[in-house]
Every structure is written in C-alpha cells, then in structure tokens.
Amino acid sequence: MIKSRANQSHAYRDFLIAWTSRIVRARYQQSILGGLWAIIQPAATVAVFTIIFTRFIPVDTGEIPYVVFSYSAMVPWLLFSASITDMVESLVMNMNLVTKIFFPREILVLAALLARVFDFAIAFSILIVLIMVYRLPVLHIGWLFLPVILAIQMALSLGLGLIGASLNVFYRDIKHMIGLGMQLWFYATPIIYPPTLVPEAWRSLYHLNPMVGVIESYRAVLLRGQLPSSSLLISAALAAGILVAGYLFFRLVEHQFADVV
C-alpha cells in the first residue's frame, strides 16, 4: 500500500516529450541520410512488390496504380510494426532507468510509439505527393477521418505494445515472437494485395484482424475519395478492448519490473 498526496503524474508530460525527441535524435544521429530513411524503407519495399505484382504475378488493383496502392498501406503498416517492435524493447533497453529512478513506466512505451509517428509523418508526406502525382482525389470530406483512423491504429499498437513490453521484461522470447508475429500479420493484412482476393468464405474471419479495417479505411479515404470502410468499426472496438486490456495488464505487473532484472 502506497499513499502519496501529491499526484506527480502531470509533471511527467515534459519527460514524455523530452524522451520522445531523444529517441528520434538518437536514431538519426551520425547518419548521413537521417530522416530520409523513413522514406527509403517503405519506398524500397514497395518497389520490390510493385515489380513482382505488376510484372511477374499481376494483381488487379482496379483503377489505382499498384505503386500508390501498396505504398498507401505500407506506410501505416510500418508505423504499426516498427512501433510495436520498439515498444516491446522499450522497458528492457532502459532497465538502468527503471531500477534507479521512479517515473510512470508507461512513458517509455508511449515515447517509443510517438517516436515512430515522426517517421510516419515523413513517409506520409511522400504519400500525399504520390496521390497528387497520380491525380487521385485530395482534400475531400473523408480526410477528416484520417486522424480517427490513425488514432484507432495507435490505440491498437499501444495496447499490444504495453502487453508486449511488460511480458518482455519477464520472458525475452517475446521479442522473437513479435518479430515472427509481425511477419505473419503482414500477409494477413491487405497491404500488397486487395482484400477482394480473399475467398468469400474467409471474409468474416479475415475482418477480425483489426488492421484490415484500418488499412481498408486509409485506402478508401486516400485513394478512392470515400468515407472509411464499415470494417473500421470492428477495428475500433477491438483496438479499444486491446488498449484497455493492455493498460490493465501493465498496471498489474509493473510493480515487479524493477525486481526482475
């Protein structure tokens, strides 16, 4: 039982900001290309898939050119997978802080996520350029939903990140499991192929993957000038549930972090 009159948590907002910017600065320090890496990675991956799925095994993406089709999904996907990988490691990598200083531990996890949003913003700006180059509809009413889609995606990431980060303190297998899991999850999400290729019988199961609704909604808004797809509701519900569960789990086990190292 610990009682403390002063609620110090409001004071840690500045720590969140300082720690996030520390991660971003450390990532690109002593690198020549710096923030360009945030673009190079999705661009290179998309280039490979574009060659494969337009030349070798043509995939029908309707009127949308394959490059934009896959890049528009690759950018949010990389935010998702890279942030989860970072979040899972965030506690273990900073154990010297966890065992020496008191502060709300979730800040480390949250900062790992926010630091990836910085990369996302860079890569996303290129996506806007692509959309304009291919003369797809821009700045329509659907764009108002972009922050909502992003928020749902981040809630989902944070929930998984909180669980993964705390489990990784106890079992280092988690790190490897996450690496494998992200690879498989990539193919279970319509990033390099349209969801119409999924057999009808599997569709409802397929939509239980919360990233399906997220990716479909990004595409609907960004590429087709539509409102988010209805499957975003499933994603929102799952994301909210996972975030709450993740936070509760984190609170339940965080008092053991400093003892386990």
């Binding site: 004071a11 500045d14 300082a18």
Partner: peptide, 10 residues
C-alpha cells in the same frame, strides 16, 4: 532530460 525524468517541468 534528467530533470524531466525526475519529474520537473521544463
């Protein structure tokens, strides 16, 4: 950085 970890505002 250290000051904010210790709970101080900027």
């Amino acid at each position: 950085l250290n000051g904010t970890i210790l709970g101080m505002r900027r």
